[in-house]
Amino acid sequence: MNRTLKLVSAFGAGLLTVAGMAQTTTPTTQPAASAVVAPHAEPAKIALIEYEQVAAATNEGQRALQEIQAKYAPKKAQIETESTEVDSLKKQMQSAPATEADEARAAKLRTIDTKEKQLQRDVQDAQQAYNADLQDALGKVAQKLGPTVVKYVQSNGYTMLLDLSGQQAQGGVSVMWAAPGTDISQAIIEAYNASSGVAAPAPSAPTPTARPRSATPRPSTTKK
Protein backbone atom coordinates (compact mmCIF):
# COMPACT_ATOMS: atom_id res chain seq x y z
CA MET A 1 0.00 0.00 0.00
CA ASN A 2 1.40 3.41 -0.96
CA ARG A 3 1.88 5.38 2.24
CA THR A 4 2.50 8.68 0.41
CA LEU A 5 -0.66 10.58 -0.42
CA LYS A 6 -0.38 12.57 -3.67
CA LEU A 7 -3.01 15.18 -4.40
CA VAL A 8 -2.19 15.50 -8.06
CA SER A 9 -0.61 12.58 -9.89
CA ALA A 10 1.14 14.95 -12.29
CA PHE A 11 3.34 16.08 -9.42
CA GLY A 12 4.30 12.55 -8.38
CA ALA A 13 7.65 12.55 -10.20
CA GLY A 14 9.07 15.69 -8.58
CA LEU A 15 8.56 18.90 -6.72
CA LEU A 16 8.27 21.19 -9.72
CA THR A 17 5.91 21.20 -12.67
CA VAL A 18 6.99 22.41 -16.05
CA ALA A 19 4.42 24.82 -17.41
CA GLY A 20 6.10 25.41 -20.74
CA MET A 21 8.18 23.19 -23.00
CA ALA A 22 10.70 24.19 -25.65
CA GLN A 23 8.90 24.97 -28.87
CA THR A 24 10.20 25.60 -32.39
CA THR A 25 8.24 27.59 -34.98
CA THR A 26 9.03 28.26 -38.64
CA PRO A 27 7.29 31.35 -40.20
CA THR A 28 6.09 30.84 -43.74
CA THR A 29 6.78 34.40 -44.97
CA GLN A 30 10.24 34.89 -43.52
CA PRO A 31 13.49 32.97 -43.55
CA ALA A 32 13.50 29.95 -41.35
CA ALA A 33 14.02 30.90 -37.71
CA SER A 34 13.40 29.19 -34.45
CA ALA A 35 11.85 30.67 -31.34
CA VAL A 36 12.68 28.76 -28.19
CA VAL A 37 10.46 29.18 -25.17
CA ALA A 38 12.44 28.57 -21.99
CA PRO A 39 10.90 26.03 -19.62
CA HIS A 40 8.99 27.70 -16.82
CA ALA A 41 9.18 26.08 -13.40
CA GLU A 42 6.19 26.65 -11.17
CA PRO A 43 7.04 26.11 -7.46
CA ALA A 44 4.96 23.44 -5.80
CA LYS A 45 3.22 23.99 -2.51
CA ILE A 46 3.72 20.88 -0.42
CA ALA A 47 1.94 19.88 2.77
CA LEU A 48 2.98 17.26 5.31
CA ILE A 49 0.71 15.10 7.45
CA GLU A 50 1.06 12.21 9.86
CA TYR A 51 -2.05 10.45 8.67
CA GLU A 52 -2.28 7.60 11.18
CA GLN A 53 -1.64 9.91 14.11
CA VAL A 54 -4.24 12.35 12.82
CA ALA A 55 -6.88 9.61 12.57
CA ALA A 56 -6.11 8.50 16.13
CA ALA A 57 -6.08 12.07 17.48
CA THR A 58 -9.53 13.07 16.20
CA ASN A 59 -12.43 12.96 18.64
CA GLU A 60 -13.81 9.98 16.76
CA GLY A 61 -10.46 8.22 16.87
CA GLN A 62 -10.07 8.88 20.59
CA ARG A 63 -13.54 7.52 21.24
CA ALA A 64 -12.69 4.36 19.28
CA LEU A 65 -9.50 3.92 21.31
CA GLN A 66 -11.41 4.17 24.56
CA GLU A 67 -14.00 1.65 23.41
CA ILE A 68 -11.30 -0.85 22.46
CA GLN A 69 -9.50 -0.32 25.77
CA ALA A 70 -12.73 -1.05 27.61
CA LYS A 71 -13.28 -4.17 25.52
CA TYR A 72 -9.86 -5.56 26.42
CA ALA A 73 -9.86 -4.49 30.07
CA PRO A 74 -10.99 -7.96 31.32
CA LYS A 75 -8.29 -9.68 29.26
CA LYS A 76 -5.71 -7.23 30.58
CA ALA A 77 -6.76 -8.01 34.15
CA GLN A 78 -6.55 -11.74 33.43
CA ILE A 79 -3.02 -11.42 32.06
CA GLU A 80 -1.93 -9.36 35.04
CA THR A 81 -3.28 -12.07 37.37
CA GLU A 82 -1.43 -14.79 35.45
CA SER A 83 1.77 -12.76 35.52
CA THR A 84 1.48 -12.22 39.28
CA GLU A 85 0.96 -15.95 39.79
CA VAL A 86 4.05 -16.86 37.77
CA ASP A 87 6.15 -14.32 39.69
CA SER A 88 4.87 -15.71 42.96
CA LEU A 89 5.76 -19.29 42.00
CA LYS A 90 9.25 -18.21 40.99
CA LYS A 91 9.78 -16.47 44.33
CA GLN A 92 8.63 -19.62 46.11
CA MET A 93 11.19 -21.61 44.17
CA GLN A 94 13.95 -19.21 45.11
CA SER A 95 13.04 -19.35 48.80
CA ALA A 96 12.62 -23.13 48.93
CA PRO A 97 15.02 -24.92 51.28
CA ALA A 98 18.04 -26.61 49.78
CA THR A 99 16.86 -29.88 51.30
CA GLU A 100 13.68 -29.92 49.20
CA ALA A 101 13.18 -33.20 47.37
CA ASP A 102 14.21 -33.27 43.74
CA GLU A 103 10.79 -34.57 42.66
CA ALA A 104 8.99 -31.74 44.41
CA ARG A 105 11.34 -29.20 42.90
CA ALA A 106 10.94 -30.68 39.42
CA ALA A 107 7.16 -30.59 39.78
CA LYS A 108 7.27 -26.89 40.68
CA LEU A 109 9.52 -26.16 37.72
CA ARG A 110 7.10 -27.91 35.39
CA THR A 111 4.20 -25.91 36.81
CA ILE A 112 6.08 -22.65 36.35
CA ASP A 113 7.06 -23.56 32.81
CA THR A 114 3.47 -24.49 31.90
CA LYS A 115 2.00 -21.31 33.36
CA GLU A 116 4.71 -19.13 31.84
CA LYS A 117 4.09 -20.54 28.36
CA GLN A 118 0.35 -20.05 28.79
CA LEU A 119 0.99 -16.45 29.85
CA GLN A 120 3.10 -15.83 26.76
CA ARG A 121 0.39 -17.26 24.50
CA ASP A 122 -2.30 -15.19 26.18
CA VAL A 123 -0.23 -12.01 25.84
CA GLN A 124 0.50 -12.69 22.18
CA ASP A 125 -3.13 -13.55 21.35
CA ALA A 126 -4.45 -10.51 23.20
CA GLN A 127 -1.95 -8.19 21.53
CA GLN A 128 -2.79 -9.49 18.06
CA ALA A 129 -6.52 -9.19 18.68
CA TYR A 130 -6.12 -5.71 20.15
CA ASN A 131 -4.02 -4.52 17.21
CA ALA A 132 -6.49 -5.95 14.71
CA ASP A 133 -9.43 -4.19 16.36
CA LEU A 134 -7.51 -0.96 16.67
CA GLN A 135 -6.37 -1.08 13.05
CA ASP A 136 -9.92 -1.70 11.89
CA ALA A 137 -11.37 1.12 14.00
CA LEU A 138 -8.76 3.69 13.00
CA GLY A 139 -8.93 2.54 9.39
CA LYS A 140 -12.62 3.48 9.31
CA VAL A 141 -11.82 6.91 10.72
CA ALA A 142 -9.02 7.33 8.17
CA GLN A 143 -11.40 6.57 5.31
CA LYS A 144 -13.85 9.22 6.52
CA LEU A 145 -10.98 11.64 7.07
CA GLY A 146 -10.09 11.62 3.36
CA PRO A 147 -12.62 14.18 2.07
CA THR A 148 -11.62 16.63 4.80
CA VAL A 149 -7.97 16.29 3.81
CA VAL A 150 -8.70 16.76 0.11
CA LYS A 151 -10.90 19.78 0.73
CA TYR A 152 -8.29 21.42 2.94
CA VAL A 153 -5.35 20.98 0.59
CA GLN A 154 -7.36 22.10 -2.43
CA SER A 155 -8.75 25.15 -0.63
CA ASN A 156 -5.28 26.17 0.50
CA GLY A 157 -3.57 25.72 -2.85
CA TYR A 158 -1.38 22.71 -2.05
CA THR A 159 -0.15 20.70 -5.01
CA MET A 160 1.23 17.70 -3.13
CA LEU A 161 0.57 16.02 0.21
CA LEU A 162 3.16 13.75 1.83
CA ASP A 163 2.24 11.28 4.55
CA LEU A 164 5.00 10.96 7.16
CA SER A 165 3.45 8.10 9.14
CA GLY A 166 6.18 5.55 9.80
CA GLN A 167 8.42 7.08 7.13
CA GLN A 168 11.66 5.80 8.66
CA ALA A 169 10.39 2.28 9.30
CA GLN A 170 9.02 2.01 5.77
CA GLY A 171 12.02 3.54 4.04
CA GLY A 172 9.86 6.27 2.54
CA VAL A 173 10.31 10.00 2.18
CA SER A 174 12.64 11.43 4.81
CA VAL A 175 11.92 15.07 5.57
CA MET A 176 15.03 16.72 7.00
CA TRP A 177 13.50 20.17 7.38
CA ALA A 178 10.16 21.82 6.76
CA ALA A 179 9.04 25.42 7.02
CA PRO A 180 6.63 26.31 9.83
CA GLY A 181 3.06 25.73 8.76
CA THR A 182 3.94 22.94 6.34
CA ASP A 183 2.60 20.23 8.65
CA ILE A 184 -1.17 20.40 8.41
CA SER A 185 -1.90 17.56 10.87
CA GLN A 186 -3.40 19.74 13.61
CA ALA A 187 -5.43 21.77 11.14
CA ILE A 188 -6.92 18.57 9.72
CA ILE A 189 -7.78 17.28 13.21
CA GLU A 190 -9.63 20.49 14.01
CA ALA A 191 -11.40 20.60 10.64
CA TYR A 192 -12.52 16.98 10.91
CA ASN A 193 -13.74 17.37 14.49
CA ALA A 194 -15.79 20.37 13.44
CA SER A 195 -17.38 18.55 10.51
CA SER A 196 -17.93 15.17 12.20
CA GLY A 197 -19.94 16.54 15.10
CA VAL A 198 -18.31 14.02 17.46
CA ALA A 199 -17.58 15.56 20.85
CA ALA A 200 -14.26 15.01 22.57
CA PRO A 201 -14.48 11.92 24.81
CA ALA A 202 -13.85 12.15 28.53
CA PRO A 203 -10.25 11.45 29.58
CA SER A 204 -9.43 7.81 30.25
CA ALA A 205 -6.47 5.62 31.09
CA PRO A 206 -3.35 6.00 28.90
CA THR A 207 -3.45 4.22 25.55
CA PRO A 208 -1.35 1.00 25.39
CA THR A 209 2.04 1.66 23.84
CA ALA A 210 1.75 -1.03 21.17
CA ARG A 211 -0.33 0.02 18.20
CA PRO A 212 -0.51 -0.98 14.55
CA ARG A 213 1.27 0.85 11.78
CA SER A 214 1.55 0.74 8.04
CA ALA A 215 -1.91 -0.72 7.50
CA THR A 216 -4.27 2.23 7.75
CA PRO A 217 -6.39 2.37 4.59
CA ARG A 218 -5.87 5.44 2.47
CA PRO A 219 -8.71 7.25 0.69
CA SER A 220 -8.48 8.34 -2.90
CA THR A 221 -7.08 11.86 -3.24
CA THR A 222 -7.53 12.44 -6.96
CA LYS A 223 -8.06 16.14 -7.58
CA LYS A 224 -11.21 16.98 -9.45
Rank of each mutant, 00 (worst) to 15 (best):
K45S: 14
G171P: 00
A137K: 00
A104V: 13
D183E: 09
R211C: 03
Q154I: 01
P206C: 07
V141E: 06
G171Q: 04
A55K: 00
A13C: 02
A47I: 12
Q168I: 00
V37P: 05
K115V: 11
T58L: 10
A44N: 15
F11D: 14
T111D: 15
Q78A: 09
A64C: 07
S220A: 12
A13G: 07
T84V: 00
A47K: 02
T207Y: 11
S185K: 01
K75I: 08
A38C: 02
A215H: 03
G20D: 12
I189S: 02
T221W: 13
E60P: 14
A96R: 09
V8L: 15
Q135W: 01
Q66S: 09
L48F: 07
Q154E: 10
L119V: 06
Y72I: 03
A179L: 09
F11S: 13
T4F: 13
R218P: 06
S155L: 03
T216F: 01
P27F: 01
Q30F: 07
L164C: 01
E85Q: 11
Q66I: 10
P43Y: 10
E60M: 04
A187G: 03
Q118C: 08
Q62N: 07
E116Y: 10
K76V: 09
R213N: 10
S165F: 00
P201G: 05
T111K: 12
T81F: 02
L65H: 05
M21Q: 14
E103W: 06
W177N: 14
P27Y: 02
G197A: 08
R110M: 15
L161R: 05
E60C: 08
A32F: 08
A98E: 13
Y158K: 06
Q170P: 00
